[in-house]
Nucleic acid binder design. Structure first.
Length: 203
DNA sequence: CCTCAGATATGCT
DNA sequence: GCATATCTGAGGG
């Protein structure tokens, strides 16, 4: 099993981290069971200058506090009254930026994921959305602010030293129409042609 | 395959 | 009070 990604991976430019997380594996160990999936879709959120980001304009509240941790922390927030979304915090404490993980291709613990996603009929729907993957992997508010460099919640590099075996699509982010000009920034990244990407990027 | 309405509760004004 | 980085099921093509 690969080593977790180190802190220095996260303390870099947010867009770079969002691109390089594609192909990496997100792992959550629950009750000794390893639940994991390959990251196939991400979005970069660029802090105080990004109207779509929860820390836009330097806003700092209880909910957004984890964005002001150093890179490598988890930012898990609750939306629409029933869903969780999982983010990886990037850069340092003075730059409240993050990468939203939007979709995974399931790897380990698929039976357990099916149990967590009762009612879902096809495996494609297990983790092809930001709230779906949280439900499948058992990620909730208790994961907020956790450091992502060790169990139970961490990331593993994809193929070390190997060339990427996929092309990356860049497209506008989902569900942020209120964000003005920022809504057009191509900060959503996905693995071209992967069946678990939440929506096909517009050509 | 597609679009659309409804669910639901927390954070913030 | 109100908006929300979403999902599901129903209905139509």
């Amino acid at each position: 099993m690969a080593r977790p990604l180190p802190l220095r991976f996260f303390n870099r430019d947010t867009e770079t981290v969002a691109r390089e997380l594609l192909g990496c594996t997100l792992v959550h160990v629950m009750n000794g069971i390893r639940l994991s999936g390959m990251i196939v879709e991400t979005e970069a959120y660029l802090g105080i200058k990004d109207r779509a980001c929860h820390s836009f304009g330097g806003r700092r509240t209880n909910r957004t506090e984890s964005l002001y941790l150093r890179g490598g922390a988890a930012y898990v927030y609750f939306v629409y009254g029933m869903h969780y979304c999982f983010n990886v915090v990037t850069r340092d404490a003075h730059h409240p930026e993050a990468v939203l993980i939007r979709a995974l291709e399931p790897l380990d613990g698929i039976d357990k994921m099916r149990a967590c996603r009762k009612g879902v009929t096809s495996d494609r729907q297990l983790t092809n959305g930001p709230a779906k993957l949280c439900q499948a992997l058992g990620i909730d508010a208790s994961c907020d602010r956790k450091l992502l460099t060790c169990e139970p919640l961490f990331l593993e590099r994809g193929a070390i030293g190997e060339e990427r075996k996929f092309e990356i699509d860049a497209s506008p982010r989902i569900g942020i129409d209120y964000a003005g000009e920022a809504a057009t920034w191509p900060l959503r990244f996905s693995v071209r042609g992967n069946a678990f990407v939440s929506r096909r990027p517009k050509a």
